[in-house]
């Protein structure tokens, strides 16, 4: 089947998509956007988090056909050209990135959290990120990164 949608503000078309493919597969393997990750492909880890019409979703759980005519934003679309988004900057600065496989999903999840709750308390951060697994960091520096990003966004 054919999928037409808008990804990171650009009209994209994928042809010959098999009906069983997920949005994650189409993004990664057909549209050249491997930023959303494939740690489980069954909705358990959050590494594939993208925006679908402004809502964060696990792209691995979205059948590709459901993205037809809709608006998708991936981690690749958050920065402004070469400029990192403040959330991305905070992850690098805080040491919240080790292997980095969880990072794209977390960056999108934190981006969404701060859009809704600009100054989240620790409990709110933990609750919001409970669906995003990280195996490397023990989360401490991820929390630091969120606080850091929140502080900056608060200022600006």
């Amino acid at each position: 089947m054919r999928i037409d949608c808008v990804v990171n503000g650009v009209f994209r078309r994928a042809d010959d998509v098999w009906a069983g493919e997920s949005l994650l597969h189409v993004l990664r393997e057909r549209l050249g956007l491997p930023g959303a990750k494939n740690a489980c492909e069954q909705g358990e880890c959050g590494s594939c988090t993208v925006y679908l019409d402004g809502e964060p979703v696990c792209a691995c759980l979205v059948p590709a056909g459901q993205a037809r005519g809709r608006d998708v934003v991936t981690v690749e679309g958050l920065g402004d050209g070469d400029e990192l988004h403040p959330v991305q900057r905070a992850f690098v600065a805080a040491g919240a990135v080790q292997c980095g496989f969880c990072t794209p999903g977390l960056v999108v999840a934190v981006h969404d959290l701060l859009a809704r709750t600009p100054s989240p308390a620790d409990g709110e951060i933990r609750e919001a990120l409970a669906g995003n697994l990280c195996r490397c960091t023990g989360y401490e520096k991820i929390l630091t990164a969120v606080r850091l990003a929140a502080g900056r966004e608060h200022e600006s």
Binding site: L78, Q88, V92, F101
Partner: peptide, 14 residues
Amino acid sequence: DGALKVRGEFAFSS
């Protein structure tokens, strides 16, 4: 590799 990883542009084996 930090900037590449947060941008989703770091090339993992998958």
